[in-house]
Simulated assay, not measured.
Amino acid sequence: MFRRTTTADRTMMNFCRLMCCLPFLCWSAATVAEEITLTNGEWPPYLSEQAPHYGIASRVVSEAFAQEGITVRYVFRPWRRAYLEAESGKYHGSVVWTFEKDRGEVFHFSDPIFEGRSVFFHLRTSTFDWKRFEDLLDYQIGGTVGYTYEFEKLPGIQVQRADTDSDNFRKLLAGRFDIFPSDIKVGYAVLRSGFPPEDVARITHHPRAYNVVSYHLILPKRHPESSRLLALFNRGLKKLRESPRAASYFDSFTTP
C-alpha cells in the first residue's frame, strides 16, 4: 500500500543523511593543513632552492612546523628582498637570520635553530695562526660583498671584497690574499660544489672559530599571525629536537 511521505519522515531522512556525511566532513577538515609562506635565499648547505628539502635549515623549519600541522611553502629571493618582503608582512616570515638590535625591533625571533661556526680559510702551505684579532694585522684578508665582519672594527684591518664566496676562494688559491673568513660548512660546500678536488685539497681552515652565532626564524611583528606562529614553531622545534628520528637533522649542522 502506498504511503505519503510526511514532514516528519523527511526530517528523519535529512537527519540520517547528515549523520552519514559527518565522518567524511570531519576527515576532510582534518586533512586540510594550514599553509604559510616564508622567504628563503641561497646559502648552501643550509638553504638552497636546488638542494633536497631546500637545505638542512629549511628542512628543520619545515619539520618543526609540521609537528604542529602547518605546511611551509618557500619563495626564494635575493637576501635583501627576502628580508624586506618578510618585514612588510607580504609573507609570514623568513629563514634564517642572526639577531641584531634593529631586526629585533621589527621581527619576532624564534628559539635558535642552529649555531653557525665561522673560521679563517687559508692555503695549506701557509703558516697562518692567530689568537687575537690584533694578530690579523699581519695578514691580507678577503671578504664578500654584503658581509660585515667583527674584526673589521679593529683599526688597521682592511678587507678586500669580492662579489661571491667562490670569487674569494679563487683569489685565495691565486695568492691574492692570505685568509678568507666564512662559515665552515658554507665554505666547504662552496669548495666542493665549484672547484676541482686538487684545488679543494690545497685549502684548509684554522681550527679556532672567530665567531659562533645562532640562527633563527624571523616573523614580522606587524603580521597578525606572527605571535601564534612563533609559539607553534618553538613548540614544534622542541618536539623535533626530542625526536630520535630527527637527530640526524641537527647532527648535520655540526660537521664540516
Rank of each mutant, 00 (worst) to 15 (best):
L136W: 01
S126V: 09
L219C: 02
Y215S: 05
L136H: 00
N168A: 13
I218G: 01
R124Y: 14
I184F: 14
T164W: 05
P155S: 09
F128I: 07
L191S: 01
E134T: 06
K221T: 04
K131Q: 14
L154I: 05
L136P: 00
F121P: 00
D199Q: 11
I157R: 00
A174M: 06
Q160I: 12
G175Q: 10
D199E: 12
D163V: 13
H206K: 11
F133N: 00
I179C: 10
A189R: 01
A201R: 12
G143Q: 07
P220L: 01
S126Q: 13
R222V: 15
G194K: 10
Q158N: 15
A189Q: 06
Y210A: 07
Q160G: 11
Y147N: 12
P207T: 04
P196G: 08
H223P: 02
R132M: 10
H122G: 05
K153I: 05
G146P: 07
E225G: 09
R192K: 14
D163E: 14
V200Y: 04
F195S: 02
R170N: 04
A231Y: 13
L219K: 02
T125S: 15
S214E: 08
I157H: 00
F133D: 01
L137D: 03
L229E: 06
E198F: 14
T127N: 15
H122M: 09
I141G: 03
E225L: 13
R170T: 04
L230S: 07
N211G: 12
